[in-house]
Amino acid sequence: MQIIELLTPHYEAAWLPWAVQYFFLAGVATGAALLTALCSWDSTGSSLQRLLPVAVLTLAVSAIAAPVSLLADLHQPARFWHFYAHFTPWSWMSVGALLLPVFVMLSVALCASWWLGKTHWMRLLSPLLVLSALSITVYTGAEMMAVRSRPLWSTMWVPVNLALTGWLATVGVAFVLERFLPAALRPGAAALQLLRGLGLALAAALVAVATAWALTGMNGGSPSFDAALRLWNDFPVWRMTMVGSAIGGAAVVGALLRGRHRLGARGYTLVLGLGLAASAWVFRWALFMGVQGVPKFGAGLYLYHMPLGGDGLLGMVGVAGLCVALVALASWALELFPARQAKAVA
């Protein structure tokens, strides 16, 4: 009997947990930008307009926190300068270095317009913000799709799933943040039902996309489906991950369906919002950190051990702390200036 031993070198993860935080917050920010732009054009005092304060708050927090995660992922504070000094238009990362500042500036400008009560400014900025948000959606998805060595990434389904899960997370974050608004700015039951309907529509779109991906893969038209099928057959860890994701997704959709008469219940929107946001975050964790655990060549898995320092747990806690601080600052500012509340409701 001949024994052949295969040795596979272990490589460190190229994309650290900072990338998970960035792509999560970027997805939330683009969804909040689209929602804010839509609400800013409604002047009838309907449920859509009542969603404007929480949409603005979600946009402000995510649009400010997302670039912080990106700069941290670059490992060196001044590394972003190379994107401008040595611009490479064929690199999506380099293109994103131009698109992201524009999006952040437009987001801050629209939030400031709402704060100052300048409705006409908001309506002028909202079309530009929509285009900018869509450009960020395309760039973040294409940045992953461009990695041809990873079949699970190199597919058109990745940008679509990133967009839909990010926008679903926007709904979840809005459910959480509306509880921190002053009473005069709270959306109300009708507006929360509208937000719930938006979440159901996005969940239905995700189911449709997953079904189309599976059917395309069964017909031999999606290498990413073949790669996922290999993970399912060969690695029990991934099998448990996929089953857990399916169960978690079903639970979130079930909570949305049952929420028609329970949105007013104390704590229900908080749990629902956290569940929606967590599902989108976990999807990104599996997509980034889990996929990097699969060797490009050879057999076996690289088991990722998350460090406790700035490149791992401490960094994730820091981003969460930044978001909490931004929410607290915004809530304090709204309480400090009640006149802003009167303008927003008027």
Rank of each mutant, 00 (worst) to 15 (best):
V20S: 05
G248Y: 14
R258T: 14
S69K: 05
G166V: 03
V291T: 15
T165E: 10
V173T: 14
S331A: 15
P236D: 08
L303Y: 11
A26V: 12
A13Y: 10
M145S: 13
D234A: 11
A228T: 15
R123A: 04
H261Y: 12
G275T: 04
L274C: 11
V324R: 02
R79D: 04
T170M: 02
W115F: 00
L99G: 04
H261E: 14
G267T: 11
S279R: 09
T211Y: 10
S47W: 03
W15V: 03
A63H: 01
V61C: 01
Q193R: 13
L192S: 15
L192M: 15
T269Y: 09
L6G: 03
A191P: 05
M156D: 14
A163S: 14
F23N: 10
A342F: 11
I4R: 13
V102G: 12
A33E: 00
F87C: 08
S135Y: 00
L51E: 03
F180P: 00
C39K: 00
T119F: 00
S245G: 14
L194M: 15
M144T: 02
Y139L: 04
T241N: 12
E143T: 12
M218Q: 14
A142D: 00
G312K: 05
L57W: 02
L334T: 03
L270N: 03
A346Y: 04
L185C: 11
F283G: 15
S69D: 07
D311F: 08
G172Q: 11
P223R: 06
V95S: 02
L192V: 01
A208Y: 05
A142S: 11
G197A: 10
A265T: 11
V104K: 02
V237W: 05
V209R: 13
R50M: 02
L71H: 13
R230I: 04
G318F: 08
I136N: 08
A63G: 09
G275P: 09
A325V: 04
G310D: 12
G267N: 08
V130P: 08
A183L: 15
A14F: 06
H75Q: 15
A346L: 08
L35T: 02
A328R: 03
G31Q: 02
A109D: 09
L329C: 06
A299R: 07
